[in-house]
């Protein structure tokens, strides 16, 4: 048995053209409405811990110290008179990295970073974020997680 697929030629008559335009406008309208509802899903307000938090006095951190603020997913390090805040969120797919002998290791897909967050082993392709640090009038240091910096963005203390 044979199956016959006839392809009918469609002509673009004036009437077809009008109807085609009509349907196009209809579709565009629907797409526009769809766009509005899509926007509905995009959050305007984020819930979660505030992006700024205090890490105490600079004196709490002796030279060479490393301290983890696990709730904030931040590691604070001190080298000489420099203090840095490194994000613990893996640049691969967002797991929380853990401090290790060589720096930071990610449990999820095996990315490795050195002590200042430079990636040494994939699959991550970027270095860990650093965050801006500022001194509060109280003498405490404050980390601002919305102020994203790159590696070695230290804050100098006396």
């Amino acid at each position: 048995m044979s199956i016959n697929y006839e392809r009918e030629k469609q002509e673009l008559t004036r009437r077809n053209f009008v109807s085609l335009s009509g349907w196009s406008i209809f579709t565009l309208g629907l797409l526009g409405a769809g766009g509005l509802f899509a926007r509905f899903f995009w959050p305007n307000v984020r819930y979660g811990p505030p992006s700024k938090f205090s890490i105490g006095k600079p004196g709490n951190y002796p030279d060479g110290a490393q301290q983890t603020f696990i709730d904030q997913k931040v590691s604070v390090i001190r080298h000489g008179s420099n203090i840095g805040a490194i994000s613990l969120v893996c640049k691969h797919l967002g797991c929380t990295v853990a401090p290790s002998a060589t720096g930071y290791d990610c449990p999820c897909h095996g990315s490795k970073y050195d002590a200042i967050g430079q990636v040494t082993h994939g699959p991550a392709q970027a270095n860990l974020d650093w965050f801006g640090i500022s001194l509060l009038p109280s003498g405490d240091l404050q980390v601002d997680k919305s102020d994203i910096r790159t590696v070695s963005a230290y804050y100098g203390v006396k």
């Binding site: 899509a38 899903f41 995009w42 959050p43 984020r46 819930y47 979660g48 967002g94």
Partner: peptide, 16 residues
Amino acid sequence: VMMKNALLGGDTVGQE
């Protein structure tokens, strides 16, 4: 970032 935010309703997995 847009897709992730639309999916999670935020930056991280939480109540949203």
